[in-house]
């Protein structure tokens, strides 16, 4: 029991951040039919934003909203400079995000160097939960990530913006015919997805070594989790993150990370093999 609880908390910690990253991928896919391959680099930018801001003496908790803003701003710039010319060619848009990811990652290498750096966690004292000692920062992340995800879902399901966005995902031409400017929605959702990735990078920065490859490493499971969860609705991100986050943490505690990765990958392939619409497609049957 004493071994299980920390593991469960680790899984929850990982899953909750994975969820933030996955929501961004799902809403961008829903809107533009594009899997944003630069998502990992927005995550990266968030982590480096914390590094820079901490260096300037900005308190950690303040760097989180700033990382969110940095990711969002970069997303806006990418849309304005590139994606708006090719949004009607989804296959090319995927490639363009791939090129963007390469360029952003290399820009980070040029500015900060290829080696890994450390970000100082704001909470270092472990706390006692249910009789075990556990990192208070990780607990804080769980709370923050779940709160942010809840806000995002509230925006998507309770506001006029969310209604318009979901309508555009379900039937883009019809949404246009009802007066919705879908191009503007594209831009806002792409930017929101990037902001969430940036925010996730910032909260994960103290737990990972901050280096130019960390983005891809973190976002790859998120890619799998949106496949597993299904891209049909934003809620699919929850299912996917739970499955991928949970299985990764469990497998990594038993085997080496490489074997764990292979197991989780195979599991994902098996799930999408039999459920092409992902786990969220199950409910609709």
């Amino acid at each position: 029991m004493s071994g299980f609880l920390p593991l469960a908390l680790d899984a929850l910690n990982y899953t909750s951040v994975l969820l933030l990253v996955s929501i961004g991928l799902v809403i961008v896919f829903g809107m533009m039919q594009v899997i944003n391959l630069a998502h990992g680099e927005f995550f990266l930018v968030g982590a480096y934003a914390v590094l820079v801001l901490q260096g300037l003496g900005v308190p950690f908790w303040l760097t989180l909203p700033l990382a969110f803003a940095a990711g969002g701003l970069l997303g806006l710039v990418c849309d304005a400079a590139i994606l708006r010319f090719i949004y009607h060619r989804p296959a090319d848009t995927i490639l363009a995000t791939w090129g963007l990811s390469l360029a952003i990652r290399q820009a980070i290498v040029i500015i900060f160097g290829p080696s890994s750096q450390q970000v100082v966690a704001p909470l270092t004292e472990p706390v006692n939960v249910f009789g075990i000692s556990y990192s208070s920062y990780r607990l804080a992340i769980i709370a923050i990530a779940i709160a942010v995800a809840a806000v995002v879902f509230a925006v998507l399901y309770k506001t006029a913006f969310g209604l318009a966005a979901r309508a555009a995902m379900a039937n883009r031409p019809m949404a246009q015919c009802l007066g919705i400017n879908t191009r503007r929605l594209d831009r806002v959702t792409f930017s929101l997805g990037a902001a969430l990735a940036g925010f996730s990078g910032a909260v994960m920065a103290p737990l990972m070594s901050v280096d130019p490859q960390m983005g891809m490493g973190f976002v790859l499971p998120a890619f799998l989790s949106i496949l597993v969860g299904g891209v049909g609705s934003p809620a699919g991100a929850i299912w996917g993150s739970v499955v991928i986050g949970g299985s990764t943490t469990a497998a990594a505690s038993i085997w080496t990370p490489v074997i764990a990765q292979i197991i989780v990958f195979s599991l994902s392939i098996a799930i999408i093999r039999f459920l092409p619409a992902g786990l969220s497609g199950l409910r609709r049957k």
């Binding site: 006029a160 209604l163 318009a164 309508a167 379900a170 019809m174 949404a175």
Partner: peptide, 26 residues
């Protein structure tokens, strides 16, 4: 205003949400 062939209502939305769609862009 356009009522397209096949109606193209948002099947996953409630009736009320569909009606709201008629005004939120305007």
């Amino acid at each position: 205003a356009y009522v397209p062939q096949g109606r193209e209502i948002f099947g996953d939305f409630t009736v009320l949400e569909n009606l709201r769609m008629g005004v939120i862009g305007k």
